[in-house]
């Protein structure tokens, strides 16, 4: 297949993917998103002959627009812009999960500091304030008191960008020092790991220690439903155990659409890039079949 990789930074994840694609003899077109102009009918790089484009943009804003444009050109893009739109925004993510009946932390969104403070007080302490767009655990606040809430809200209100005035308040889930990251393709798990830390933030990007995790039937069902709720694709689904480690009871806090997988590749005995490319080959074949003229 002829694959485009849309990127601005080649992380180890992209390198693993590039190597696997090239080792299998696939033709790869690296597309630096920073060098592109996206017109209404074409972009700087000719993508018309590509079987699919994988969005690996590091910047969410670029990912959202670039996938919209690619989709409008009739190019199969992984992940599609509808999925990206939901996953890039924590509020939309929460709504999609709740609408699909997936257990997800109780959440409220408010647009003023006064309304946000009311929401925080209703949740009680501790609770969590998150940016609606953001990743790697940045700007996440665990709020332990009204004094802290007032200070954090005042700071957020002066940060400047309008997104910081969308206050996303969430119940604090007392997880057992770890959460679970599942990489899935169209709802089918590729690999899963725990991310553990003594800090309340357990993100691998924050130094959380990773270890392979075996998904039980409940988790498998949740992964499938959560994936479907956001429109499927190549996704990172994050779960927390409620009621202690190994309780078999989960809440899904978010689904990520430009998922990193190097830590999963290191922590499990699954050849993650190989499994991802297996899936990409299937998607490219489906895309070809859909475009083939009916005899």
């Amino acid at each position: 297949m002829h694959v485009g990789i849309l990127y601005s930074r080649i992380r180890r994840d992209e390198k693993l993917l590039l190597n696997e694609l090239r080792d299998r003899g696939h033709e790869v077109e690296k597309i630096d998103v920073r060098k592109q102009q996206f017109g209404l009918d074409r972009m700087t790089t000719d993508v018309s002959e590509l079987d699919l484009v994988i969005d690996r943009c590091l910047a969410t804003s670029r990912s959202l627009y670039a996938t919209e444009f690619l989709d409008s050109y009739g190019v199969t893009v992984i992940n599609n812009p509808r999925t990206a739109d939901i996953c890039a925004d924590k509020a939309k993510n929460s709504l999609a999960l709740a609408e699909a009946g997936v257990p997800t932390p109780n959440t409220k969104v408010a647009f003023t500091t006064d309304a946000a403070l009311e929401a925080i007080e209703e949740f009680g302490y501790p609770c969590v304030l998150k940016p609606v767009v953001g990743s790697w655990g940045r700007l996440m606040a665990k709020i332990d008191s009204r004094n802290a809430a007032e200070a954090i809200l005042e700071h957020k209100a002066t940060l400047g960008h309008y997104e910081h005035k969308v206050f996303y308040v969430q119940e604090f889930v007392d997880k057992p020092g770890r959460d679970i990251r599942v990489l899935a393709t169209d709802g089918e798990p590729v690999a899963a790991m725990t991310r553990s830390s003594e800090h309340w933030l357990t993100n691998a990007a924050k130094g959380g220690k990773t270890a392979a995790f075996e998904l039980d039937e409940t988790a498998l069902d949740l992964v499938e439903t959560a994936s479907d709720a956001v429109g499927d694709g190549l996704l990172g689904i994050d779960l927390m155990e409620v009621g202690g480690a190994g309780s078999g009871e989960y809440t899904v806090h978010e689904v990520n659409h430009t998922v990193e997988f190097k830590a999963l590749n290191d922590s499990t005995d699954v050849d993650v890039p190989a499994r991802v490319v297996d899936w990409l080959e299937t998607k490219a074949a489906e895309s070809d079949a859909a475009e083939a003229p009916i005899a």
Binding site: S8, R9, I10, L58, A59, T60, S61, V133, G134, S135, W136, R138, H161, A205, G236, N256, H257, T258, V259, E260
Partner: peptide, 23 residues
């Protein structure tokens, strides 16, 4: 440092972390 080109290798200062970076 960001690798701008590979043959021959050209390096430049890598972009600073932006607020919307991530997964």
């Amino acid at each position: 440092l960001e690798v701008i080109d590979t043959a021959p290798p050209v390096l430049d200062r890598a972009p600073e972390l932006e607020e919307d970076w991530g997964e």
